[in-house]
Amino acid sequence: GLKTLHLGSCVVTINLQEIQHGFSEIRDSVQAKDDNINIRILRSTESLQDTKASEKCCLLHHLLSFYLNRVFNNYQTTDHPTLRKLSSLANSFLIIKKDLQLCHAHMTCQCEEEAIAKYNRILSHFEELEPQAATVKALGELDILLRWMEES
């Protein structure tokens, strides 16, 4: 179930299958709340796998922070199983982020222009939407981010 992410010189091992499995249990209910299917936040043009190897780590680090700070904790639901899943997903993201910070400490997670520009574009797609709708859409697109990670 472990997957090794090759992010330029930064190499981290994560349990992607566990994260994918966790998300799959809330995916349909979250995506069903996304009424605006004409818009997509995580677009192929800004994907992780189409990013220069040396900047993948930075982009992923920003995306993990985005999900931790702007999505997981802002998603409104009274459904306790969903809340537990979100907490588990957030913990998994925190672990990956900690590994990426180690890379940063070893100068293998440099942020340059391309990663910052891509992240800002993703953020602008997110901020075009009404806040709660944006949170629902971003959470519903977690499978896209997980596939980017799987293919990188």
Partner: peptide
Amino acid sequence: KISERFSSLQ
């Protein structure tokens, strides 16, 4: 009536 979001991989 619209389907759910579909990903053939999933």
